[in-house]
Design a protein around this nucleic acid. Structure first.
Lengths: 204, 204
DNA sequence: CTTCTATTGTACCGATCGGTCACCACGATA
DNA sequence: TATCGTGGTGACCGATCGGTACAATAGAAG
């Protein structure tokens, strides 16, 4: 679906063949974008923060928007992958919701800058790529929707309107604004607390 | 405390008279900022969209950031004013939460562009003004916190961790991303649905 | 008719925007 | 030695950035 167009010959065969320099650029750019917004950060700033000159920077990236796209998709894809693994592994609907909740909060907490960009800078992407990212968001929401539907068929949950699911996910997504990354343990606690909120609303 | 600047129209006991041209500029700018982000919109674009030349535009505003500040504070101040009125008028904790919920969703829905900017473009403000706006957010959260505390003392609610309240408010705030002003459900319906979510989590 | 104030258009400022360019340093291989 | 691929430099491009200067316009008052 989402082809990672890195550089000419970079990572076609092996999946983890992204140059460490590019990785560093992605991290630095994510921090800057999270701080001042995509349009508020110039390539000059990224150049200085990474210690690379303009030319060297553009050797590792193809465009500034390319950078944004990679940042917004990286951990959202992970979220989907992990979410599907949880859905496959956990059969109890209640425990599945709890696991999804913890995983979501921990990912947001551990990659706060990237998730901030992912949730807040969608508008800066051009049409095609924005549609790709919103597609990822839909895919992730579908994982939760299926978890709730499973609980419904098993008689544990009551029907949940999609607007309520959107709201509940917004509860997680909006946390980038007030969350302070203190560690995964803290994030897990919040995940558990939010899971209670969800379960209180979807349980029979 | 935070009401020194101009607010759209003088229907709320605001003595200041705002020129209709400035009002138009604020509306147009809010739409543009919501669409492409504060830093992504140039004053040239605002100039063209309003039909005013650069000089004429700067006769009505003092700076681009001034515009952003007014947009972010206008309806957040209204939210606080209305919220306090609701808190004073409604003594039943459950009904107070429902009223707050409906009012919040209706304000977000009716002024979607402005609220989008308010929730998403905070980082573009300079320190002093950003602190002022985050202060407004805190003030608004305090209104909800007092509503929950009131329900607690009346024996209707159980204690609610502040992190849960932040999450529940995020459920509302994040809705700017998927809300459609003329969507299948009206804002009051969504407000009621969200109120149920809140009440399911705070009720004894 | 002046004279004033309120509003507007246009040319312009220095700075910065995203992106490209020719050129270069260096290790590996032949 | 010569060649090549990888990674890097820094000047440079046209366009646009937020903001200013200033003359021109209009309408009401005198």
């Amino acid at each position: 679906m989402n082809e990672q167009m890195t550089r000419p010959q970079a990572d076609k065969g092996d999946g983890r063949k992204v140059s460490p320099t590019r990785l560093k650029v992605l991290q630095v750019a994510a921090n800057l974008f999270a701080d001042r917004g995509y349009s508020g950060v110039g390539v000059n700033e990224i150049s200085e923060a990474t210690g690379l000159g303009r030319g060297a920077l553009y050797y590792h990236i193809s465009s500034k928007e390319d950078l944004l796209y990679d940042i917004t998709t990286a951990y959202m894809s992970d979220l989907i992958t992990d979410g599907r693994a949880i859905a496959d592994a956990e059969t109890d609907p209640v425990e599945r919701v709890r696991a999804l909740s913890r995983a979501l909060m921990m990912t947001i907490s551990e990659h706060l800058s990237e998730m901030t960009v992912c949730f807040r800078e969608l508008h800066a992407l051009t049409d095609e790529r924005r549609r790709a990212v919103t597609g990822l968001h839909s895919d992730y929401q579908a994982i939760w929707a299926m978890a709730l539907a499973d609980g419904l068929t098993k008689g544990v949950f009551k029907p949940t309107p999609s607007v309520v699911l959107k709201g509940l996910l917004g509860m997680y997504f909006y946390s980038f604004l007030w969350l302070t990354p203190r560690g995964p343990q803290n994030a897990a606690d919040i995940g558990n607390a939010f899971a209670d909120v969800v379960l209180n609303s979807v349980r029979k």
